[in-house]
Amino acid sequence: MPPAAAHDALGGQFLRYLINGLVATAVHYGVLRFNIEVLHMSLAAAANALAAVFGIATSFLGSRYFVFRGRQGSVARQGALFVLVYAAIAMLHALVMYVWADRFGLDYRIGFLLATGMQMAFSFLANKFVVFR
């Protein structure tokens, strides 16, 4: 593949990745609101945990069939790797927040943005080169 074509393909994947992330986030938030406002779940953490399952499932399906389409392997293998990547991302996000806000005493909102930016980059690269290679 010529360098220009590779750059266009990578750019297209990243744009699809961003779209998929927005859709998965909207699903997560929508299910969270449904759990709290319609089902009247009293624990926000439980409502959020359940909603996260829907958001992560949406992200996986979108990654498999929209972002990294044409890279179809075993669903079980990809699903297991996807969950491992997300577990690692959650730990990285928590570590950044701990160091930034709890240890250094800096603004947690800025730390959240930094951690989320790192999360996005790590997730894209891990999904491209490990999960959906």
Rank of each mutant, 00 (worst) to 15 (best):
I36S: 13
S63F: 08
T58Q: 04
F14L: 15
A44W: 08
A88D: 12
S42V: 05
L84E: 11
L50E: 09
N20A: 15
L81G: 00
L32T: 14
H93R: 03
R71H: 09
L32W: 06
A80N: 05
L15Y: 13
L43Y: 05
T58W: 06
V31T: 14
Y65M: 01
T25M: 02
G30C: 11
S42P: 11
T58A: 07
F82T: 05
T58D: 07
R16M: 06
F34N: 08
A26L: 14
A76Y: 02
R77A: 10
V67C: 09
F60H: 04
I19T: 15
H28N: 13
A49I: 09
A46T: 04
Y17S: 13
L84F: 13
A87T: 10
V31P: 12
Y86C: 01
F66R: 03
G55E: 00
F60V: 01
F82Y: 13
V23D: 07
V31A: 12
A24E: 11
S74R: 11
V31Y: 00
V53Q: 03
M41C: 12
V83G: 09
G79K: 03
G21E: 07
V23N: 02
A51C: 08
I89T: 07
A76D: 05
A26P: 04
A52H: 02
F54S: 12
A94P: 00
I89H: 03
L43F: 09
T25F: 01
A24N: 07
L61P: 00
L92I: 13
L15W: 07
F60A: 02
L43P: 09
R71C: 13
L84Y: 10
V23Y: 05
I56A: 04
L92R: 01
A57H: 02
R33W: 12
A47L: 07
M91S: 14
F54K: 11
G21V: 09
F60P: 03
L32P: 09
A24P: 10
L43V: 09
V85N: 15
A76M: 08
A49R: 06
R71Q: 14
L18W: 01
A46E: 14
L39P: 05
H40R: 10
S74C: 00
A90N: 02
Y17C: 14
F14M: 11
Q78Y: 07
L81S: 14
M91D: 00
